[in-house]
Amino acid sequence: MITSPSSLRRSERSRRAILEAALELCTEKGYGRVTVEAIAARAGVSKKTIYRWWPSKSAVILEAFTDALVGTTPFVDTGDIAADLRANVMGAVKLLSTPPYGPAYAGILSEVHHDDALAETVRTKLIDPRFEEAVDRLRRAQEQGQIPPDADLPLAVEMLYGPVYYRHVLRKPVQDEETIAALVAHVLRALGAPPEP
């Protein structure tokens, strides 16, 4: 069967409505009380439509969170690795501290401990691609001479973003711009990068 352009538009419209409904319900009810039935009712679609595209409510909410994270925290290259890392980490902190995204992601993280399929999806759809993008950005800085050639880039990514997720999971106060600047400076110093002018 050939899909017409109008049906493709309807599918995308339905997908966006479902993702928005899931996030709205997370804000209103909390992650644990959101159901596929409620998402379907809010989005104006059938449960069958949701299950055709996602295996669970967690998968719906994960896609909504991933879309938001990718859209608000691109790995730009201005030629200044310190500034670019500060902007990226700050974007992640702001997203995680803003409803519905922070509570939605906390709910997903609570599910991965007893849902192996969701854990795998989180790794393959969110964590691994973002990790590789971060390593690629650091590699470009390395090629530009801003980071030494022997620096352990994957470890640097964990050093940069580990504190963000640690604070989020434990519901500690979020980092401010000054703290993030200190974190980025410390990680770059640990890599052997020359100090900022």
Rank of each mutant, 00 (worst) to 15 (best):
V89W: 00
S110Y: 03
A82P: 06
A117F: 05
L118A: 13
A83W: 11
T73G: 07
A92C: 07
Y105W: 10
H114Y: 12
V76M: 04
F65M: 09
A83Y: 09
D80T: 03
A119L: 08
F75H: 12
S110D: 13
P99T: 03
N88M: 12
H113W: 05
V112I: 13
V70S: 15
V89E: 01
Y101M: 12
L85P: 04
T66R: 07
Y105E: 14
K94N: 15
A59I: 00
A82D: 11
V76T: 15
E120G: 15
L69N: 09
N88S: 13
A104S: 02
A64K: 10
A68D: 08
A87K: 12
E120I: 09
P74S: 14
P103W: 02
F65Q: 04
Y101D: 05
Y105L: 12
H113A: 15
L118S: 14
T98R: 09
T66W: 10
I81E: 03
P74C: 08
A59L: 01
A82T: 07
A64H: 04
L118W: 15
I61N: 05
E111M: 09
K94P: 05
V93T: 02
T98M: 06
E120D: 13
A104R: 01
G102I: 01
M90W: 11
P100M: 01
R86M: 11
P74H: 12
A104K: 00
P103F: 01
L95E: 02
A87V: 08
F75G: 02
K94W: 06
R86K: 12
D77K: 07
H113R: 08
E63F: 04
A59D: 09
G91Y: 04
L69D: 05
D116W: 07
H113I: 09
A68T: 09
F75Y: 07
A117Q: 08
L85E: 09
G102H: 00
E120C: 08
H113P: 00
M90T: 12
P74E: 11
E63M: 10
F65S: 08
G71W: 07
A82C: 10
V112W: 02
D67W: 06
A82W: 08
P99N: 00
P100F: 01
T66C: 09
G107T: 10
A83R: 13
S110P: 02
A92G: 10
L109D: 14
D115T: 03
A119C: 06
P99L: 02
A117N: 01
K94F: 08
F75N: 06
T98I: 04
V76A: 13
F75D: 10
D116K: 10
L95D: 01
I81S: 03
D80P: 02
G107D: 14
E63L: 04
Y101P: 15
T78S: 15
H113L: 08
S110Q: 14
P103Y: 03
Y105K: 12
T73S: 14
D115V: 01
P99C: 00
A68N: 13
T98C: 07
A119Y: 05
E120A: 11
F65V: 09
V70F: 11
A92Q: 10
A64G: 06
V112H: 02
